Simulated scan of single mutants.
Amino acid sequence: MTATTDPAASGAGRLGFSADQVIQEWGFDDDVDQDFRDQLSDDVGVELVDEDYGDVTDSAIVWWRSDDGDSTDLEDLLVDAASALDDGGLIWVLVPKMGTRGHVPAAEIGEAAQTAGLQPTTSLSAAPGWLGVRLAAPGRGK
């Protein structure tokens, strides 16, 4: 029996990602959850693209820690991430879980998101040690 990955039933689907989406990754560092990244790439069937990717993307993940900067820095990063999104794209901000080094309070993420023109919609345990906050980008219209 050959195993096939159905993104809808996987971690990617749980985050709202689907097969063949281009997912841009921001804030990569040596502390990210590599298993989460590998599973996400496997689930959608496409490697994650980095911050320098020069085309439209379907979604984004942003790794953010308290020592990455203040809320203004997060706002700027979210504006950059959102500017590359196709209509209907979403962003997941991944922060260290409460009680661990680098944790960022949800209120700070929400404030930065709203200033960047995004709307926080949900949060969940995205990976061991990482909390995910989903941000929806407004449609650009046609």
Rank of each mutant, 00 (worst) to 15 (best):
P120T: 08
F28L: 12
A112G: 11
G45A: 11
S71H: 04
R14N: 04
L90C: 07
L118V: 04
V79A: 06
G117E: 06
A8S: 12
G13V: 01
T4H: 13
V79R: 15
S66A: 14
T72M: 08
A12V: 00
V95I: 05
E75M: 00
L124S: 15
D80A: 11
P105G: 13
S123K: 02
L90P: 00
L40A: 08
V46Y: 07
E47W: 11
W26R: 04
G11N: 08
Q114S: 10
Q21I: 03
Q21K: 10
D30G: 12
A106K: 07
D76G: 05
V79D: 06
G45C: 13
L131G: 00
E51Q: 08
V44A: 02
D80R: 02
R134T: 01
G141H: 13
D68T: 06
F17N: 01
V93R: 08
D6T: 15
L118K: 05
I91Q: 03
D6N: 15
I23A: 05
D67M: 08
M98C: 07
Y53E: 06
G11L: 09
A9P: 03
V95W: 04
T57V: 15
G11C: 06
A107N: 08
E51S: 11
D86N: 14
P128M: 11
K97Q: 15
A112K: 01
A126F: 08
F36H: 13
G27P: 00
D67P: 02
E108S: 13
W64N: 01
A116K: 09
G129I: 15
A126V: 00
A113W: 06
A12G: 10
A12Q: 03
R65K: 15
R134K: 11
I23L: 12
G132F: 02
L124M: 15
S83T: 11
I23S: 04
G117K: 10
A9L: 15
F36A: 12
L85Q: 04
W26Y: 13
E111H: 13
D30T: 11
A12L: 07
